[in-house]
Amino acid sequence: MACLVSRSGRELQRYDNQGRRQVVGCIPYRFKNCIDGSIGDALEVLVITSQKGQGMMFPKGGWELDESVEEAASRESLEEAGFLAMLRMN
């Protein structure tokens, strides 16, 4: 088990030309395994609870200047949901 310290501060945050903070997110999913160990057709989707108690959501967070969009999405999935992702960009 490894300890992860979330990034803090807003000095590296990306903003668009209208001053809105840019965020990234992901929809974590996997195909459910069958009883015989093969991969089935059923899809499982991971959602997390909001710290502010506003229901269930997908992992997301700020996109920083020193990372690509893929790096930011991977970091957010680890920080917010505790999982390592294999990303597929669509």
Rank of each mutant, 00 (worst) to 15 (best):
Q22A: 13
L12A: 07
E44Y: 05
A81W: 01
Q13L: 08
Q22M: 14
A42V: 10
W63D: 00
A73R: 01
N17P: 13
R30G: 03
S50P: 03
G37P: 02
R21Q: 15
A85Q: 08
A2M: 13
W63M: 02
M56A: 14
I27Y: 05
A2Q: 11
G55F: 06
R10S: 15
W63R: 00
C34E: 15
V69P: 01
L87H: 08
G62V: 09
E64Q: 02
R75T: 01
S38M: 03
L46P: 00
V5H: 12
A72Q: 00
V23M: 08
L4Q: 09
D36H: 05
L12Q: 13
F31D: 09
E79N: 05
R14F: 10
N33K: 15
G53Q: 07
G37C: 06
E11W: 11
E76C: 06
T49D: 12
M86G: 06
A81I: 10
R7A: 03
M56T: 12
A42F: 05
G19N: 14
D36P: 04
M56Q: 13
N33F: 11
S38R: 03
E79C: 01
R30S: 10
M57H: 09
E76W: 00
N33A: 14
T49W: 06
R14M: 07
G55D: 08
V69F: 02
K52A: 14
I48R: 00
R21H: 06
M86T: 11
A85S: 13
G19R: 12
D16A: 08
I35W: 13
L43G: 08
Q54A: 11
G25V: 04
G82W: 00
G61F: 03
C3G: 13
T49F: 06
I39F: 06
S77Y: 00
L84H: 12
S77L: 03
M1G: 13
G62N: 04
G9W: 05
E11K: 06
G53I: 07
R20S: 09
D16F: 03
L65F: 06
Q18R: 12
M1A: 15
S74P: 01
M86Q: 08
S68W: 02
F31K: 13
M56R: 10
S38E: 02
N90T: 08
C26Q: 06
V45H: 12
N33S: 15
C26K: 02
F31S: 08
A42Q: 14
A42R: 07
G40K: 00
N90L: 10
K32Q: 15
L84G: 14
A2D: 07
L12H: 09
L12R: 13
K32M: 15
G61R: 01
L43K: 13
S68Q: 03
V23G: 03
M89P: 03
S74A: 12
M86H: 15
E70H: 00
S50M: 02
A72N: 00
V23I: 12
A85M: 11
M57T: 02
V23S: 11
E71N: 05
F58V: 07
A73P: 02
G55M: 10
Q18T: 14
K52I: 10
